[in-house]
Design a protein around this nucleic acid. Structure first.
Lengths: 157, 157
DNA sequence: AGAATTAATGAAAATCATTTCCATTTATAA
DNA sequence: TTATAAATGGAAATGATTTTCATTAATTCT
């Protein structure tokens, strides 16, 4: 198993190598899919998208790669409460597509929102700094999610 | 199955009845444990705590009850990324013990923090209002979590 | 380039939290 | 107290994720 604490803020190709991981076909395929698809993909979603082009990349590899990517901070692993993890490319808290989530507990649909993000991110950064110092924590990720009922679901209930 | 949209902001005993649920021994035992224990309990944790006093309350009932409580908004279901859900009593976003979480991705330990909560909650409330209007969403819960490495884990890696 | 080394892989099996099924019990309403 | 519908438990099913292990591929060393 490759060596430890590689959670800096770079960008891929190089990041892998720097951390002692090998850049393989499968891993590139997965990164490719992730960067091409907007959204929140489950491991199986990714498998299905990768499979046509690379039929010999197994689901196990998808899981293993997502785990690596997640540890490297290149991917966010998300939980929307439906029992399967979702993954999306991280682009750094200041990155172009940073967003938070609005999750409907009725139909499990998810809205990405970018409104209010600036204020949120600013506050989060202060908070991160304060918490990091106080609790001696090296924070490298955060999750903000709102749960509720979407228009459709709040009518149907 | 009892009827629908019972996600108001009251407090238990009564809340159950009002929503058409029956208040049974098992359910009370679970609420009792939840209100007595500070922390983030898994379904099994709760089972183990309930079992000595009420050996005939099964794990299935724990899950079912937690699901009900969660739908009623009386309990938060949390995910700290270790593959099992954790539950804690909700006391309303303005309640006495409201806190957010700092999760160590190394050892899965969790710190509850209350610093910055006021600012966070204030911002979240504005955001909730704005998002609710814009996306026609009835928001009734939020999650803020920071992920990182605790002091110990960032040394060991 | 070729051999040696070690990480990465796939397929199948194992794991493990959570759900479902169903016959029985219990809480509530009549 | 009886009728009815919800709640229960235990066993079995489910389904996402991990582990195992023999094989393959990427890197390193000559």
């Amino acid at each position: 198993m490759p060596r430890g604490n590689c959670q800096g803020q770079g960008w891929w190709h190089g990041k892998f190598r720097d951390c002692g991981y090998r850049l393989t076909i499968g891993r590139e395929a997965i990164l490719d899919i992730l960067s091409r698809s907007e959204g929140h993909l489950s491991a199986e979603d990714i498998y299905i998208k990768v499979h046509p082009k690379y039929p010999n990349v197994g689901l196990t590899t998808i899981y293993r790669t997502l785990d690596v990517l997640s540890n490297l901070g290149m991917v966010y692993k998300l939980d929307f409460g439906d029992g399967r993890a979702r993954y999306e490319l991280a682009e750094g808290p200041k990155g172009a597509h940073h967003h938070h989530h609005l999750v409907c507990t009725g139909c499990n649909s998810v809205i990405d929102y970018t409104d209010f993000i600036d204020e949120e991110v600013e506050l989060l950064q202060q908070t991160e700094k304060g918490l990091g110092k106080k609790y001696n924590f090296k924070i490298n990720n955060h999750v903000i999610q709102f749960y509720g009922l979407c228009g459709k679901c709040s009518v149907n209930k």
